[in-house]
């Protein structure tokens, strides 16, 4: 369910029972993305137990997929995995920014939903007995959702916010 929601902004759409959909997406999405990249198809739809999932490539993605498809013989899986953003699904992949220590969180002022963050930017600190532990963005992107707020106690590795990475195309 959660996984489905995370991907809802992307060009994945589904119908049916939420649980069934979640299971279907978990099981099939990586395969579908690979398949899109390999075949150059524009759209794949899968139905199982009354739930339907549709994954649609953007035209750019299709072209990339096609160009990466050629040398992929014999190592199709690897090539597909290495292919940068063959579909909009992976282009909009979200990355969790995580606490680097256990303590109390302070978000940097500029962090709010929709804010653009550069890779390596200082996005928060976790105060450990008065000493700040820096949290830096592991990816560039747009803040998609806040999971913790300034003043919150956080544990090591806890999600602070989600970053939606900006696709390769926008580079």
């Amino acid at each position: 369910m959660a996984k489905f929601r995370d991907l809802a902004n992307a060009n994945v759409s589904g119908e049916g029972n939420a649980e069934e959909l979640g299971a279907l997406i978990d099981a099939l999405l990586p395969v579908l993305v690979d398949r899109l990249a390999e075949t150059g198809l524009g759209e794949i739809e899968v139905e199982r137990n009354g739930a339907t999932v549709r994954v649609r490539s953007e035209s750019l993605g299709v072209q990339q997929a096609a160009s990466f498809g050629a040398p992929a013989q014999g190592a199709a899986g690897q090539a597909a995995a290495a292919a940068p953003a063959p579909s909009s699904v992976s282009a909009a992949r979200k990355h969790a920014v995580r606490a680097t220590a256990v303590g109390f969180l302070t978000l940097s002022k500029e962090i709010h939903v929709g804010a653009k963050v550069a890779k390596g930017a200082l996005v928060a600190t976790v105060e450990v007995l008065g000493i700040p532990s820096e949290v830096r963005a592991t990816h560039g992107g747009i803040v998609a959702a806040l999971k913790s707020a300034t003043g919150d106690p956080v544990e090591y590795g806890q999600e602070i916010f989600l970053l939606e990475s900006i696709g390769e195309g926008s580079k």
Partner: peptide, 16 residues
């Protein structure tokens, strides 16, 4: 950085 880290352990006690 965990079981031998006095700051991490004390900070965890305060945070919880």
């Amino acid at each position: 950085q965990s079981y031998l880290s006095a700051p991490a352990i004390i900070s965890a006690a305060l945070a919880t």
